[in-house]
Every structure is written in structure tokens, then in C-alpha cells.
Design a protein around this nucleic acid. Structure first.
Lengths: 139, 139
DNA sequence: GTGATTGCAAATCTTTTGCACTAAA
DNA sequence: TTTAGTGCAAAAGATTTGCAATCAC
């Protein structure tokens, strides 16, 4: 199978196994939707309705649980751009985001295209876990 | 009256008047809590309980409404760091934030201490409204 | 089998809204 | 007065949780 996207292809089953997640029917189906194609941004709601459209039976609660399990396993990255709605990104490499405020859509900015040139040291006793840059755009 | 903080002092009443907001008892009381002192970060819940402690009677709904009205008027800035909870910052000048993930606390980073050296152009037909840099820290 | 996972529905939490009441101008 | 603003309680979303049923191993 080929993909049009520049992303290391890996069978959903292998991804789950490698992450120590039991490959249940629901997890496999969601993993296929998420990873068999281009990088994408989903919300629990959007993934759930996509699953429904594809005749995959998964409850919304399981979609939430699965998204968090995938995130913990490093298969997804959670992006916080909107208080009151969680986005998940299948692209877990170092990069930032455009957030279109009217439509609520996210677009990746390749890591190399944003350079945070200076950063103050983390407060005493803490360390930097991640730096998120959100470029908020509008029409 | 003096303040220990380097911030242009302005009476709460004047701020409201200048913003075209009718200075009601509730708005005045909340404005005093927010602006008579150092810059701060609040959530609706935290401001509401602070008001209660100070024997200020305001409903939570009014706190929400007021925070949004202040934000629209440019007196506050909303910071999105946590899906499911809105933070508001009394510092509306150009700056970024440390977000301590365990405690949920926000700290300002002066604008000059973070330099986003490169930015790709906004997608066609859009313009950049703001660039938010969130430095997520942990113990 | 047996322990992990799921579905469902209920609970929780944050935020918004409708509307009668109150207060600022 | 007159109209904006408030409080309350209910509604609305998003997310989580408890628990019996189900499934992977």
C-alpha cells in the first residue's frame, strides 16, 4: 500500500503492539482512520462521527479514552488552542500550528519554519517540557 | 495610593468609563480586585471565590459575563493553555507565558524575553491576529 | 478462564442562556 | 423613566466515570 504523505508508514496493528496497547477492534479501527493517510487534526467528536460514517461502531466515551491512551503512548499529541475543545494531532514531531479562529481549523507549521530564538530559563525547580507556538489567524 | 507593581495605575471607575462599560457595583468590585495591584491570572471560578471571600456578592454567571466584557474592551486578555478552563490575564501587553502543568499556574514571560525569529506567512486570505507562545513546564 | 476493554448512561465540570428583577443614568 | 445589567436556575457542551457485559489472549 502506498500513501501520498511523507510519513513513515506503519500498520495500525504494529503501532498498537509497539505501544503495548491491546489491539481491540475499536482501537484498530480508530488507528486506521488516524494513521492510514496524511497527518491530521481531530477532535473526539469529529473522530467519532467519522467512525460512524465509516460504519465503525465505537462509543464516544471509547473515542475519548482511546485518544488519551494514544496520546500517552506517544502516537498522538494534544494541541490546546481552544478552551472547551481538545484537538489531537497525528503529527507528533516538533512543529507548531496555525489556528484559524473562525473555522476552528488547525494547520501544521513545520518545525523549521518557526524559530524561537530566545527563551528565558525555566523557573527554579522546573524544566521545560514543550514550547507551543500558536499563530492565531483570521480572515 | 501607591502600588508595588510597575503598571500604569488607573482607578477602576475610570477604566470602566473609558471602556464604555457602565460602572455597576459588581463590575467595579471585580475591576478593583483585578486591577488594583499586580498583574494577575484568574479563572472565572478563582475570581468568583475571591470575590466571595472579600464579601463581594456577585454571581458566577456575572463573573463570566464580566470577564468577557472586560476582554472585549481590551482590559483583559484570554489565555488558552488548558482545554476546559479559561484563564484571563490583566497584562494585555505583548508577552508570553510559562504554564506549570501540575499546578495549573501561569507566569508571564516579558515580551522581550521570547523572540520568534521566523514566521511563515499566513495562509492566503488570512492575516495573523496574534502569536501565542506557551512554555509548558513541569517539576 | 481471566483480566483488559468497551458501551452505556449518569455524573461532573465549565460555560452560556432566558427571563424576571434591579439599578444606573 | 428607560435601558443596561444582574441573579438565578436551567440548559448546553465537553469530558469522565462506574459498572456490567464483552473480548483478546
Amino acid at each position: 500500500m502506498t500513501t501520498l504523505c511523507q510519513r513513515p508508514y506503519r500498520h495500525a496493528l504494529d503501532r498498537l503492539r509497539a505501544s503495548g496497547l491491546r489491539p481491540t477492534r475499536q482501537r484498530l479501527a480508530l488507528a486506521k482512520l488516524l494513521f492510514d493517510g496524511c497527518d491530521r487534526h481531530v477532535t473526539a467528536e469529529s473522530l467519532h462521527s467519522e467512525a460512524s460514517t465509516s460504519d465503525i461502531q465505537v462509543s464516544l466515551a471509547t473515542v475519548y479514552n482511546t485518544l488519551h491512551q494514544f496520546t500517552e503512548a506517544g502516537l498522538l499529541r494534544e494541541i490546546v488552542v481552544d478552551a472547551g475543545r481538545s484537538y489531537f494531532d497525528t503529527n507528533v514531531s516538533d512543529h507548531h500550528h496555525f489556528f484559524h479562529e473562525r473555522t476552528g481549523s488547525l494547520t501544521d507549521i513545520p518545525g523549521a519554519e518557526v524559530v524561537v530564538a530566545q527563551l528565558p530559563p525555566a523557573p527554579a525547580g522546573t524544566k521545560i517540557r514543550r514550547v507551543d507556538v500558536i499563530v492565531r489567524i483570521q480572515d
